[in-house]
Amino acid sequence: MSEIPTELRFATSHEWARLEEDGSVTVGISDHAQNALGDVVYVELPEQGQLVAAQHEAGVVESVKAASDIYAPVGGTVIAINSALDDAPELVNQDPYGAGWFFKMEPADVEELTELLDPEAYAEICEAEEH
């Protein structure tokens, strides 16, 4: 059973989004997702300043045996990327909700966050996948 922090929102494609106090949104992949992928060996991040629409590709996360696209959970502008992942992709496995974050966005419409799954709904999806 994977960890699902209660303050986050989730996409069905396993990204999490956290609304920060400054109004930005931090994005990463869930504990369930990093578990399913296995040891992460590379993360391709979007470029700073890039405009991304909700549910559009904003990067790729690779393990040895798999590669998954990362989709922006909300639309907006990429304002920061976690360049620590270049040299230490294992942070995604070690701390998916902390040091393993992917990028921060300035959301175009913060209301889009409400369209994402709450932790309970996301837990159900994970449970279904684990069986």
Binding site: D39, V41, V64
Partner: peptide, 11 residues
């Protein structure tokens, strides 16, 4: 060789 570390190879 014994089982190889392909995670190390990629990282």
């Amino acid at each position: 060789v014994r089982r190889l570390d392909d995670v190390k190879a990629a990282r």
